[in-house]
Amino acid sequence: KLPPGWEKRMFANGTVYYFNHITNASQFERPSG
């Protein structure tokens, strides 16, 4: 399970990334916590 605010998303080319809808942060590494 991801930390609060984070969700797993995917680009059109299939690349997975993680987006935080609270802070609008995005990253390729899975957030810890």
Score class of each variant (00 low, 15 high):
1 K>F: 13
1 K>H: 12
1 K>V: 14
1 K>S: 14
1 K>T: 13
1 K>R: 12
2 L>G: 02
2 L>S: 02
3 P>D: 06
3 P>A: 07
3 P>C: 07
4 P>V: 10
4 P>M: 10
5 G>P: 10
5 G>D: 06
5 G>Y: 08
6 W>I: 00
6 W>A: 00
7 E>W: 03
7 E>F: 06
8 K>S: 08
8 K>H: 05
8 K>G: 04
8 K>E: 13
8 K>V: 14
9 R>P: 00
9 R>Y: 07
9 R>I: 08
9 R>N: 03
10 M>L: 11
10 M>K: 11
11 F>W: 10
11 F>G: 13
11 F>I: 06
11 F>N: 15
12 A>M: 09
12 A>T: 11
12 A>V: 09
12 A>R: 09
12 A>G: 10
12 A>E: 14
12 A>Y: 07
13 N>E: 06
13 N>V: 04
13 N>Y: 02
13 N>F: 02
13 N>Q: 03
13 N>A: 03
13 N>T: 05
13 N>W: 05
13 N>G: 07
14 G>W: 02
14 G>M: 04
15 T>S: 09
15 T>V: 14
15 T>I: 13
16 V>E: 15
16 V>H: 09
16 V>Y: 11
16 V>K: 05
16 V>N: 05
16 V>M: 07
16 V>R: 03
16 V>Q: 06
17 Y>Q: 05
17 Y>M: 06
17 Y>L: 06
17 Y>I: 09
18 Y>P: 02
18 Y>N: 00
18 Y>F: 08
18 Y>R: 00
18 Y>S: 00
18 Y>A: 00
18 Y>W: 09
19 F>W: 09
19 F>N: 01
19 F>K: 03
20 N>W: 02
20 N>A: 01
20 N>Q: 03
20 N>P: 00
21 H>F: 14
21 H>Q: 11
21 H>S: 14
21 H>V: 15
21 H>R: 10
21 H>D: 07
22 I>L: 12
22 I>E: 11
22 I>W: 09
23 T>H: 03
23 T>W: 04
24 N>I: 04
24 N>K: 13
24 N>H: 12
24 N>V: 04
24 N>R: 11
25 A>R: 12
26 S>K: 11
26 S>Y: 11
26 S>T: 15
26 S>M: 15
26 S>A: 12
27 Q>K: 03
27 Q>R: 05
27 Q>T: 09
28 F>L: 14
28 F>Q: 09
29 E>T: 08
29 E>M: 06
29 E>S: 06
29 E>I: 07
30 R>P: 14
30 R>A: 11
32 S>P: 11
32 S>D: 13
32 S>K: 10
32 S>F: 12
33 G>P: 13
